[in-house]
Design a binder for these strands. Structure first.
Lengths: 186, 186
DNA sequence: ACAGTTTCTGACCGATCGGTCAGTTATCGT
DNA sequence: ACGATAACTGACCGATCGGTCAGAAACTGT
């Protein structure tokens, strides 16, 4: 069972993430939902509102994860546990993450995107409290953008549909390497 | 010294990469160039043609690098040398790469994008000729998308402008790790 | 059966899109 | 000085955009 509003949210999210927010018309969304454009605007007062509704759950979920993270002791185990939770988050909200990573800079006027940006900053600050070297920042950027791109490629391209459990395990390993590099110097 | 056509190419590339192709109007490009929309269409016969002209040099450059790569013996030294050249390519053509990574899937009808896609496949095939495990593909995706995202973030966000040489060195190291993981098993 | 509410639709609006075209301005070879 | 050509512009076109609105259609409780 699903409501019309939920269907629209799902369809819009998928289109926004793949074709782009600007390139996706309300008519197109209505067409995919089997409705008229007017009906879409009945459930959501504007295109912006539809975007906000589409990404809101992901932002809330990430906020919750970060709340937990910051409340725990700053140990290696906590950090490793977080990486697992973060990978689960990426797998559960791949379209939203992809939308944010790819089109975030061009959606500056949408309030909900600012919240998402703030969450990323929070995330980065946790990993690099004092020792924020250039390499740390670069590793963080590669990990975040790389994971998002790779998952998006898996989704959009044909790319044999890897079982979620395998994707999860491998991605946790890769992010672990990137965010906790073997200290070779110092 | 620079011609009007070159200016338009540069401006369009920057706008397409940051604001998105669909979200960038010819009027906007003309405005940034201090011209009228008609003048833009005088130098480039269509918006598509402008996009093609903007990304063509990067695609040609990548093609050249791949030609060289495939002509050399398949040694570790060749592979390491290639990573250096590839990082230089990323640094020299960051907007183009970012445009392709972020909006490639939504620009399917533009011929030049297909050529770029083919180049990425060529690249992937070089790294994983026979032993294309799922993890290999994922590492390749993370490396490619991660490098592109990180460089784009450096450009668009404030992010203290790291000297090119430092960015280059660190990025070569990161890609080296991702594309030639320490074999822990087997 | 009927009133009330939710859901949905077509017609319409102003704005903006990419693109065309006739004509003006600037540049240049001779 | 002048004709040819390159560069540029404003007016205009059909199409599509996001959004409004009055009303039809469907579903609800009584």
């Amino acid at each position: 069972m699903s409501t019309t509003a939920e269907d629209l949210r799902t369809i819009a999210l998928e289109e926004f993430a793949t074709a782009g927010y600007a390139a996706t018309s309300l008519h197109r969304i209505a067409e995919l939902a089997g409705l008229s454009k007017s009906s879409v605007l009945y459930h959501y007062e504007s295109k912006d509102a539809l975007l906000a509704a589409a990404v809101q759950p992901a932002i809330t979920a990430l906020g919750t994860i970060l709340d937990e993270l910051e409340s725990k002791p700053r140990t290696r185990a906590t950090r490793n546990r977080f990486i697992e939770e973060f990978v689960d988050f990426l797998l559960d909200h791949t379209p939203e993450v992809n939308l944010f990573i790819n089109q975030g800079p061009s959606l500056v006027d949408v309030p909900v995107v600012d919240v998402a940006n703030a969450a990323v900053v929070r995330l980065a600050e946790y990993f690099f409290t004092t020792t924020t070297t250039t390499e740390d920042w670069m590793r963080f950027g590669v990990a975040l953008g790389g994971a998002a791109y790779m998952l998006a490629s898996q989704r959009t391209m044909g790319f044999e549909p890897t079982p979620r459990e395998e994707t999860r395990t491998v991605l946790i390993g890769i992010l672990g390497e990137l965010l906790a590099p073997v200290k070779t110097k110092g």
